[in-house]
């Protein structure tokens, strides 16, 4: 039943476009979009563009997320490091990273570095903040219990702090994945010579609305894929958590 409205809308869209109510310059018919997709796939362009965008996203995510994660852990366990670095990070956080695009183009040109840099900057803050917050909000009573039961600093970290902070960290990851695609879309659309954004802008110049629409759908699909991956990680690693419990288990 939930699919009734979307399917109806799709049928309506196809019908209005086919019958000429809706100019294909404004919005091409769904079938035309699918046709364009097959066309691009046949020419081999599609996979290449997706590959380029995907590589940028992953690269930026790993670099920015990795640094943010390490810094979040560090500031989570060390008071000195927190005092020294947290205020600075929080200040930089207030700068919208997309506002830096002109500056980034001046620094790196329109090459890969610019996009990777922007994505890394975008994913940095959600991951940093949630990692740091997760570490800081682990129940001090549980840490105390760990000390009573003879856990050393390393065991405390691996068995208590990190798993205790994991729900918060994964929220940060999901949020960061959203920021990752958004940043990439903007960066690729403004200045690029390959990737999904380039494909869309190129198609715009030749009035290929079907390709433009397909690019938008592609971004949506990749975003959904990233979100599903994060959900899978949550279900796998947070089985113990009452909020993520599934199946028939009861108290």
């Amino acid at each position: 039943m939930a699919w009734l409205v979307p399917v109806a809308l799709l049928v309506l869209w196809q019908w209005t476009a086919q019958s000429g109510f809706l100019a294909s310059r404004i919005l091409p018919a769904p079938l035309a979009v699918i046709e364009a997709a097959f066309d691009l796939a046949r020419k081999g362009e599609l996979l290449q563009h997706i590959g380029v965008s995907f590589a940028r996203a992953v690269c930026g995510f790993l670099v920015g997320g990795g640094i943010a994660f390490a810094l979040g852990l560090l500031n989570g366990v060390s008071r000195t490091s927190e005092t020294l670095l947290d205020t600075t990070v929080q200040m930089i956080r207030n700068i919208p990273h997309l506002a830096l695009i002109p500056l980034v183009i001046l620094w790196f040109g329109i090459g890969e570095e610019a996009k990777v840099f922007l994505v890394a900057l975008g994913v940095f803050f959600p991951i940093y903040i949630n990692t740091y917050h997760g570490m800081r909000t682990v129940d001090p009573g549980v840490i105390e219990m760990g000390r009573v039961y003879g856990l050393g600093p390393a065991a405390l970290f691996w068995q208590i702090l990190l798993p205790g902070a994991l729900p918060s960290i994964l929220i940060g990851v999901r949020f960061a994945l959203g920021v990752m695609w958004l940043t990439l879309i903007v960066a690729e659309t403004i200045a690029s010579d390959a990737g999904i954004g380039y494909m869309a802008m190129n198609a715009r110049e030749f009035m290929q609305t079907d390709v433009v629409v397909f690019s938008v759908l592609l971004y949506a699909l990749l975003g959904k894929l990233a979100d599903a991956t994060a959900r899978l990680a949550e279900r796998r690693w947070l089985q113990w958590h009452p909020n993520y419990a599934h199946g028939r288990e009861g108290a």
């Binding site: 009573g141 549980v142 219990m145 068995q159 798993p163 205790g164 994991l166 113990w240 958590h241």
Partner: peptide, 9 residues
């Protein structure tokens, strides 16, 4: 409070 590790069986 029992202070069990919720993430361990």
């Amino acid at each position: 409070d029992e202070r069990l590790l919720m993430w361990k069986r």
